[in-house]
């Protein structure tokens, strides 16, 4: 219950910001779905593209602008990973003093913030998957029938575009992506806590950790040429579990023994 209460407060604090982001991102995507048909027709009239071919929604997904609308929330969520902690230290209220002195295990604060970030990311993916068919319908409604090749299967549209990165094909895939995301966020949280505990020295420690992780990543890429894909998957899963465990243990120690507010 304590966890849910903190989770509720995290969402309550960001609700207007989240709503604004949803409106901007999905508004921009619908806007692109509306104006792309007009551009297509103009290009056909100017003989820039063939008038004898037909087009579908994948042309919108392939545009740089659409990529941009997906990159914005991705970057914002990554930045928010840091903001979700720092605003509690640096904000007007020094809310961190209250959080750290609540009669609960301090790691509950960590889990509540981690869950907030994961849920926000899942919310965007869920909303996008729901709105994608509507965006396709908007595109179809704005494009003259003779140029429209018909509605494509949403899954096919996703698989044929960069969006594939954000979606998964089966449960194993989902668990895999989910674990990687949680580990990444957890490591970033640990980085914030290291900086908060050791300040300038913490920044140096964080830079060292980033270098080690980068070397590990390069080694994995090189290893992928010598191992089968299922062997690589097990290897990466093992590394992820180790990293996540280390991140949680270190964060717990920092929160209980080294934190200042």
């Amino acid at each position: 219950m304590n966890f849910l209460q903190l989770l509720f407060i995290e969402f309550n604090r960001m609700k207007w910001f989240l709503l604004m982001l949803v409106i901007v991102v999905f508004g921009a995507q619908f806007f692109l779905s509306m104006i792309t048909p007009g551009r297509l027709v103009r290009d056909i009239q100017l003989d820039r593209i063939s008038a004898y071919e037909t087009y579908n929604f994948s042309i919108v997904l392939a545009s740089d602008y659409y990529l941009f609308t997906v990159l914005i929330p991705t970057i914002v969520i990554f930045v928010y990973v840091a903001i979700i902690w720092y605003r509690d230290w640096l904000g007007k209220g020094t809310y961190m003093q209250r959080l750290l002195t609540l009669p609960i295990r301090r790691m509950i604060i960590f889990y509540a913030k981690l869950t907030t970030i994961v849920l926000v990311a899942l919310l965007f993916i869920a909303l996008h998957s729901l709105l994608l068919p509507l965006q396709q319908l908007t595109f179809a409604a704005m494009l003259p029938d003779q140029f429209y090749s018909g509605n494509a299967n949403v899954i096919t549209l996703i698989q044929m575009s960069f969006l594939e990165v954000f979606y998964w094909h089966n449960l194993i895939d989902f668990i895999y992506v989910f674990l990687i995301s949680i580990t990444l966020i957890s490591l970033m949280f640990t980085g914030v806590l290291i900086e908060r505990a050791y300040r300038y020295v913490g920044l140096v420690m964080n830079a060292s950790i980033v270098i080690v992780l980068f070397v590990l990543y390069i080694q994995l890429i090189e290893a992928s040429m010598s191992f089968y894909s299922h062997e690589m998957m097990w290897m990466i899963s093992g590394i992820i579990v180790i990293l996540l465990t280390v991140s949680l243990v270190v964060s717990s120690l920092l929160l209980t023994k080294r934190m200042s507010a």
């Binding site: 904000g91 209220g93 002195t101």
Partner: peptide, 16 residues
């Protein structure tokens, strides 16, 4: 912390 509470010089609650 069920028995000990801190009242800092600035109210430690989010302003919203």
């Amino acid at each position: 912390y069920q028995d000990m509470v801190f009242v800092p010089d600035v109210l430690p609650m989010p302003r919203n």
